[in-house]
Nucleic acid binder design. Structure first.
Lengths: 361, 361
DNA sequence: AACTGCTATGACACCGATGTCATGACTTCG
DNA sequence: CGAAGTCATGACATCGGTGTCATAGCAGTT
């Protein structure tokens, strides 16, 4: 691989002059510049980042760890591979800023993390970003020293800078939209309460009811999914039957995620009910393969994974520049409601006017 | 950040001795080693890869480009984000071999590729891997010089080393299993024939029929999905009706992907037919969110993305070691059939014994 | 003519590790 | 006891760029 010395010799100039052509940090004569550029092209010269970094101490690399960190090793129900979107968001911002991403996947073994961090530090990454596959608390065995760290889709006990989805706000917005379109009996089939997101969304659900002065009915909020092997779907079936048996059954059923909604479609129809004429259904995640493919298409909330990634990248870049941003703890990012035909409006007037950034498709 | 000189001073030895402790390439006295190790721990010393690379010229980095390269800019129907699995496969192998992956996503703009490749070359990657999001032909504006290149899920006209899924074999295996379980009237709803995969799978479908001495009936193979905006699902509906109207309607329907199978479930039921009692359904992709969530669970074929990634990584490592492997052109990787209850056996005997690595779940 | 100011260029040290070679202490063997 | 061999260690050059400083050439000013 050619070096500046080779280029310098070919162009009959000093190495330093070649360096100047490369960086444009000092004036270079027009003829000289041309000679150098020709030589570089002929030799197929590409500057070595390693050598450059030796002096500048700026590697241009950002370390990204995905997977792992999970305290539960059980793989979650697939919910659209949020990590991927987060990573894309990060990548997009980083590429624009000229940084290069170096990525390590732990493959679910959080024990590998320290090793990966070490490798990143060897490459002198300018920042470290951890991405979790679902909203959770992590404890990270950093050893990262003074390297800036940003957590995404997770948070820790030490108040490390973190970007998390605003589950509460998302559920709040969804339920508020349901109320606006005339629903009052709103069932909510939750995921495993052990998950961080479940609790937050429950809060959002209740807050939306309260804001609309609709009394909370515990019989309408039922856990319908466990993160355990022996949940064969029976929970959801029983949950459905229990709310259908109520004196005042719900007019709309919210699901903890779109996959649950997919199952629910089948169950509701096997009970002889129509969607949305007899009962409306809403999901969570905007897992498009499901939400747009189902008939009728599913009203659901999008978790803003791409935006979270972008935000995390911006913050990391800010930390590199030394702005520090004082970002103590978590920043929550809300996401839009996607309004589709699985929910029917009960009030004749379309007084539904969302101010929450909802989209209608 | 501490250097070996700092460590050397702290341990009262020469820098070279610290280097020896790090690399173990020469004997070091026990007491000296201990002193050095203590000093390293105290200073939080992490060796600089850049400096190391200056001498060894081995960066330990592998460049990975995803997205882009696609000749069609239209995003495909989501089929389970194969790139992610491929990347995971690559990552897994690379991590085991001590290499670090650096990743760039083109975000769909193949124009960015040369720029990304340049960045990678600056980092002196030891190999370059391109991953496409679906099986396709690409033309890559390399400029990669003598850096080893491996294509995954795509191939080019120049015969660059490439790892692609064995679509033909996969479809062949699936249809063969269907035949073994007693089906003879096998419909096949294909994807857009403009896709490389579609043609290959058609060949597999026909080859399997021929191998079983079942006459090919053109009325059973119908295009049911176009990669265009105005395909509202009507194609599939008409395809279904056309085969149901045949004198000898099919006993099983194969779909071009699992998403199509999801739609087909709905359509079949709206015609008053039961799955699998009246008609069996098979998919393609083993897109688990769909295949395992549907009722009944979907028989489908898995495209071996993880394995493809692993294989690609192995080959790239081989090329780095200079084994060159003579791998002219493409290597095709087959994937297993996942046998689930959406397909019923027509022959009473369970003479079904797959030798194709099928799994039964 | 002497001085100032600017442009264009080169010499040289340096970043942090490692390869090469040299050296001193100690063991082993004839 | 001296020669040869092993062990442990250090001095120094080197990798490929960039920062610092010096210098030569030339125009403009007084």
């Amino acid at each position: 691989m050619a070096t500046i010395y080779d280029v310098a010799k070919a162009a009959s100039v000093s190495p330093k002059t070649v360096s100047r052509v490369l960086n444009g940090d000092a004036p270079v004569g027009r003829k000289t510049r041309k000679a150098v550029e020709t030589a570089m092209a002929e030799l197929g010269y590409v500057p070595s980042n390693a050598a450059r970094m030796m002096r500048s101490n700026r590697s241009g690399l950002i370390g990204l760890v995905t997977g792992a960190l999970s305290q539960k090793l059980e793989p979650m129900e697939p919910t659209g591979l949020p990590d991927l979107y987060i990573v894309q968001g990060i990548q997009r911002v980083m590429a624009d800023s000229g940084k290069t991403l170096i990525i390590a996947d732990t493959g679910g073994t959080s024990a590998k993390v320290p090793q990966l961090v070490r490798t990143f530090l060897q490459h002198r990454v300018e920042a470290l970003i951890y991405v979790a596959d679902y909203h959770q608390q992590v404890t990270l065995d950093t050893g990262a020293g003074n390297c800036p760290v940003v957590l995404v889709n997770c948070f820790d006990a030490d108040g490390t800078t973190a970007i998390v989805p605003d589950d509460e706000r998302c559920q709040f917005d969804l339920v508020t939209d349901l109320v606006r379109s005339g629903h009052e009996r709103i069932a909510y089939f939750t995921l495993d309460p052990a998950m961080v997101a479940t609790e937050l969304r429950s809060k959002g659900y209740r807050a939306a009811l309260e804001a609309a002065a609709i009394p909370y009915d515990g019989a309408l909020e039922v856990m319908a999914r466990r993160n355990v092997e022996n949940d064969d779907g029976g929970l959801l079936q029983r949950a459905l039957d229990s709310v259908l048996a109520l004196d005042r059954p719900p007019t709309v059923m919210c699901c903890g995620n779109d996959e649950m909604a997919l199952r629910l479609y089948g169950l509701i129809r096997s009970r002889g009910l129509r969607i949305p004429e007899d009962v409306s259904v809403a999901g969570f995640d905007n897992y498009r393969v499901i939400a747009e493919t189902l008939y009728p298409p599913l009203t659901t909330v999008e978790l803003p994974y791409l935006a979270m990634g972008q935000r995390a990248a911006e913050i990391a870049l800010g930390m590199i520049k030394g702005e520090d941003e004082q970002l103590a703890g978590s920043e929550m990012v809300p996401g839009p409601v996607h309004w589709r035909s699985s929910v029917t409006a009960l009030n004749s007037v379309t007084k539904l006017r969302s101010n929450t950034g909802s989209t209608f498709s």
